[in-house]
Design a protein around this nucleic acid. Structure first.
Lengths: 186, 186
DNA sequence: GCCTTTTAGTATCGAGTCGATACATAAAAA
DNA sequence: TTTTTATGTATCGACTCGATACTAAAAGGC
């Protein structure tokens, strides 16, 4: 076992490989990441602002990336009536179809050659490091809704779940997706 | 412990954070990476070609990145007399000084808040994943010389070590640096 | 030696990234 | 009703990156 001093160098290098491998299907790596996020985000988190928070870029850049995705017909922007500053981003059919060719799947194949336990371990350790790194930059964890301190599982029997922060009902599906507002339990 | 299915997503996100945090001191993330590699590479590996292999980009892009670093006075290009196609890249004094402000050090501070054993584990697991990923793209590991199958530790007593592949003498310092040609011990 | 092939690196193009800055609206707060 | 804050866009300049075409030097075949 090594001393872990060059762990971050490894991380950066592996991150770069992942990133550079994502020049596919006429999309750029960042565009893939945005698309991927939109497919995993609940309805409070499919906005330019949420993408900005997730990717850690400036909103100007995100605006351009989303404009490119819209030009390519992979997402569409919908005005939200309740707050007209907000935009809701929705994947189109093409967007969903294209996601099946996600270049990340390639490395997944490589990962499958490693012991399952090891990959799970790796995930846990990465999660801890990410949490620590996000704390330092006031970043948001983007965890699943159902692991959030504001999550209220369906209290009244058959009724939908609720988000205690936004005071909104939550479908079971939404509660399994990730959220900008999520704050971990405990 | 999670199932590890989203480990790669974590990896990509953490990689992006690292990358985006590296807009400092009037350098771009990629320029930092190149600079960092040059400070860790032995004399066979301080060339545009080696940087290309390490970063996994095309040589055209690397050529520009190196041109930018040279413009900024951080590296210099030296013609190699033995093979006049080759360029040797050397860090200047400014380059070495600037490296002390490496933005990667920030995350290192974050990492220090995690248990040391855990970081070491993380490093080992990342290394395995990187090895697997590199295998798939015919990438080079860039390991340390002294862990290479061609490394011949000073056979004749006080003489320098040797590289059995390039048939060249190796100073102790060079043997501790990383190398394009490195192939791990079987 | 001559000719072809390979290797190392550069030049240029076009789309995209990214921070910075300035800007437009809309909602919220004073 | 004014500020003030929040959400998103437009534009600029330096850089990234793949693709392609290019130069020059070494290596190999004969």
């Amino acid at each position: 076992m090594k001393d872990g001093s060059n762990t971050l160098v490894l991380l950066e290098r592996l991150g770069r490989l992942l990133h550079n491998d994502a020049h596919r299907e006429d999309l750029k790596p960042t565009q893939w990441e945005a698309l991927r996020l939109l497919s995993r985000a609940n309805r409070f988190s499919r906005s330019p602002g949420a993408v900005t928070a997730y990717l850690g870029m400036t909103k100007g850049t995100v605006s351009q990336t989303l404009a490119a995705l819209e030009r390519k017909g992979l997402i569409k922007k919908v005005r939200v009536p309740t707050d007209r500053r907000n935009l809701a981003l929705e994947l189109t059919g093409e967007g969903k179809t294209l996601l099946r060719k996600d270049p990340l799947a390639d490395l997944e194949a490589a990962a499958r050659r490693l012991p399952k336990r090891q990959m799970a371990h790796l995930g846990d350790n990465l999660q801890d490091l990410l949490t620590e790194a996000l704390r330092r930059r006031d970043g948001r964890p983007f965890g699943a809704c159902k692991t959030c301190r504001y999550f209220q599982p369906n209290v009244d029997g058959g009724r939908p779940h609720r988000c205690g922060l936004l005071e909104e009902p939550l479908s079971t599906q939404d509660s399994q997706l990730i959220c900008v507002e999520q704050e971990p339990l405990g």
